[in-house]
């Protein structure tokens, strides 16, 4: 369960104060596949960074399974990101000089998992995201965009997080590859009971999620609820 309470984030730009996240509140049950849509600059990524503890809110709170992030020290926030959060970024953000399997092993290394165990799990995750086994040891820069995004999703799953935050996960992919990625996220949510929150400006992608939110000028509104069955059908 994730609870967002009156979340506000402001930035100062010269004389102006920008408020990309303005009094946002919502709740997500465990295992939900949800999306936030909005135009570029509407504050989607800022909201995601607050939920993932990449940034700190100006006010408000994020409560994950009853634990408040407000006032949590940096070391605890790092632990929270490592243990409870998986990130999938639009530009993948993989470490370019490492292989696919090494990239997936990274979060497990930070979590103190032994090398043999993390290698075995990394290979399993790469198989789960359907990356060709012969590409497991390839360097990231020798993989296609879709393959890199699969590796990024595998990395997000590395420590079995309860929440996956995906920022424009199909933004750099063609339509077909993007469709595969959404199917993959949907199946992960279903199979692993993982809460997945996807930020996108792609309406067709948002229509495939159970809950849809719209962010406009920092304010969040929810669109009519859909069941997982209807979400899976064409909008």
């Amino acid at each position: 369960m994730i609870e967002v309470k009156n979340l506000v984030r402001t930035f100062n730009s010269g004389d102006k104060t920008i408020k990309p996240v303005n009094d946002v509140s919502f709740e997500l049950a465990q295992g939900t596949l949800a999306s936030i849509v909005g135009k570029s600059g509407s504050g989607k990524s800022t909201l995601l960074s607050l939920l993932g503890a990449l940034d700190k809110p100006t006010s408000g709170d994020v409560v994950v399974n009853g634990v408040s992030l407000a006032g949590m020290p940096d070391s605890k926030l790092t632990e929270y990101r490592r243990r409870d959060i998986g990130f999938v970024f639009q530009q993948f953000n993989l470490i370019p000089n490492l292989s696919a399997v090494d990239n997936v092993m990274l979060p497990m290394e930070f979590a103190g998992i032994r090398k043999a165990a993390r290698r075995e799990r990394a290979r399993g995750l790469l198989e789960q995201v359907q990356l060709d086994p012969e590409k497991h040891v390839r360097r990231i820069n020798r993989l296609s965009g879709g393959e890199q995004q699969r590796v990024a999703i595998a990395r997000a799953l590395a420590n079995a997080p309860r929440l996956i935050l995906a920022d424009e996960p199909t933004g750099n992919l063609d339509e077909q590859t993007g469709g595969h990625i959404i199917e993959l996220l949907s199946s992960l949510s279903r199979d692993h009971n993982t809460t997945i929150l996807v930020v996108t400006h792609d309406r067709s992608l948002a229509n495939k999620t159970e809950r849809r939110f719209r962010l406009q000028q920092g304010r969040l509104t929810e669109e009519p609820a859909r069941t997982r069955a209807t979400a899976a059908s064409p909008a």
């Binding site: 070391s75 990101r81 470490i95």
Partner: peptide, 16 residues
Amino acid sequence: RREIGVLKAIGAPNRT
């Protein structure tokens, strides 16, 4: 900087 941000985002402690 960005790569360091990635490492921290996926849970790398500062000391690492």
